[in-house]
Design a binder for these strands. Structure first.
Lengths: 344, 344
DNA sequence: CTCGTCCATTGAACCGGTTTAGCTGACTTT
DNA sequence: AAAGTCAGCTAAACCGGTTCAATGGACGAG
């Protein structure tokens, strides 16, 4: 018995057939309690742990879940979402004995190929679908690949997969309400790409909240989510005639870049310009002024998504899950507009 | 022939045995050119791709590499290193047909267990060892697990694994030289944890460079690499008697937090305090003042590490690899100290 | 012409599990 | 007492590849 013990070693030691060992180890009915005990202790004594590879082959499961991230490296670098999300996913996977297979691809072209490859190789039993886009082709693809999945947020079309959502519009809405209540009437939104659902959803939430609050001027500038583009958008806004007195950014890196642009232009934040971010990255807390932001719990999101996907793999189709909404956290980068408070 | 085609289908179509198909597909000698061609075209016509699971079982390989990240989620969030590193790794793995299995664990306790689990389950053929620590137990562990690995940087003890290093000390050294040449004589270093080799290596480089440049006062404060702790270290330094006129941070999030602390205390950067970061995250470019930093190419590092590890798996023991050193990039957060230039 | 060599190829064992058909014997049922 | 039921278990097929000993045939050497 060189190498690690196999199921046959356990069977021999317990004096039964290997089929029965398989039954006993997988808690299947039809094994006498006494025999089961004998098998389990034989396995324990030998330090037996089943070969995942053999199990994968015969049970046609990969015991792994897939996450494909298609983002420009530049966006990924500053983004606090994925590390936290993955940490949350892992917290559930480890106990379930599954692993996470990660694929990072540079663009959306390679993305579909990555899904095909992971599925075609039988490497994963299901996918996490993050960063949903309008008419997202991945939903049909993964469905065609006959694998379960969970979407982060609701797609814009009927989907065969359960969704785990966190209402980020609530955070945007309360950011706008906060700014409006401070007296701002010219508020801009630096949005993410319109094709990305969370980008357009936040934009819509912004516009709706602005209207509801009676905000006179509500501009939207679209960006690609990078800090550089956030800076560009901020410059455009500030250089326009009748510039906004507050800007709601759809992520923290852009808000931080926007803060830099304002300061560079000699505009004081928050006295002359209020700024809010999105994601509540740790770094925002330490800026001067510290960044008011919408905090999301990406780790909890990951854990919830993992639970739903695990259930889906076991054939239980769970209902869509709604997580506690993202909350707006006022820190120092928001204040009443200049004219309203300090007429000087 | 329901389901996807198997090697037997190909064999039947080509009129040969499945053993020979296996030979032909794996470019093994002993197959007549004409037969090989017939087999290959049969495979092509059927759209055959070998089952990774079956291959894993019979060839005792996982066709995947493992990366275990043991970091507090708070540190991970702001860190630009891993996303870029992983993107670099992926660029090499995809063509080699391997996948990346990622495990994120919250602390060093779970870390060794994660390595054991990935290896015990036969999920990976090798490991990337990042964030080396003093007397790192993972080296002995992975060696005991009989898996190849590649270390990022040289361990502090003899190691059976090839190392892929990027000289980050060069960047620290030239940051200090830059500051010294501007006239700074009281320079502090906000270091990472001393147990982490890159933390202590950067600290040593700082001290050596400070001495070489004749810097009068060279303080070092140790941190846990989080922005919060970087802020704390900065406060301590600035509140001390005879505070430094320049601070060299060992990562960007801490430098950004330090910048915030200084600005909050009414200290102008760079006029009254110069600041340098480490990692060249995109966001630093957009701050006001933009952050002078040491830029590292984490993506190239990932690609190089992947190549070395792939070679090691194939049994070729490559020499240690040295990447181009990290370079210091002066932006706006460094300037001559106040007393030296603007006596006011 | 015969023997030995070598190349191309086959068949079967093997990797280590899961699954299913079928066997056994004890226990009910009429 | 014969038939039926069922829990407990075994043997073997199976998943889809890799690998290796054995084989058959072509060919050159003697």
């Amino acid at each position: 018995m060189r190498g690690r013990p196999t199921i046959s070693d356990v069977a021999a030691k317990a004096g039964v057939s290997k089929g029965l060992v398989s039954f006993a180890l997988n808690d299947r009915p039809g094994v006498a309690p006494e025999t089961r005990e004998r098998i389990l202790s034989a396995a324990r004594e030998l330090g037996f742990s089943p070969s995942l590879r053999a199990r994968s082959l015969s049970s046609a499961r990969a015991y792994a879940l897939g996450l494909v991230i298609a983002r420009d490296p530049d966006i990924l670098r500053g983004d606090p979402f994925f590390p936290a999300f993955i940490a949350g996913v892992e917290s559930e996977l480890a106990t379930a004995g599954l692993a996470l297979v990660l694929s990072v691809v540079p663009d959306e072209e390679s993305e579909l190929a990555a899904y095909r490859r992971l599925a075609g190789d039988g490497r994963v039993d299901g996918f996490f679908l993050t960063d949903l886009r309008a008419h997202d082709p991945r939903i049909a693809l993964v469905d065609e690949l006959r694998l379960p999945a969970v979407t982060l947020g609701h797609p814009d079309a009927p989907s065969p997969f359960p969704a785990v959502s966190m209402d980020d519009t609530a955070g945007i809405t309360s950011a706008v309400e906060h700014l409006a209540s401070l007296g701002h009437s010219r508020i801009a939104h630096v949005a993410g790409p319109g094709r990305m659902l969370h980008g357009s959803r936040r934009r819509d939430a912004f516009l709706a909240a602005a209207e509801a609050c009676g905000v006179k001027q509500a501009l939207v500038v679209e960006t690609d989510f990078t800090a550089a583009d956030g800076a560009r958008a901020t410059r455009e806004l500030l250089e326009g005639s009748d510039p906004p007195t507050a800007v709601v950014y759809s992520n923290d890196p852009m808000a931080i870049a926007g803060l830099g642009v304002a300061q560079r232009a000699g505009i004081e934040v928050p006295r002359q310009l209020s700024i809010t971010g999105f994601d509540g990255s740790e770094i925002g807390e330490h800026l001067h002024p510290s960044l008011s932001s919408v905090v999301t719990d990406a780790s909890a999101w990951g854990a919830a998504a993992a639970r739903v996907l695990l259930a889906a793999i076991d054939g239980e189709m769970l209902h869509d899950t709604e997580l506690p909404p993202a909350r707006f956290l006022a820190r120092e980068s928001t204040a009443p507009p200049e004219t309203a408070t300090s007429p000087h």
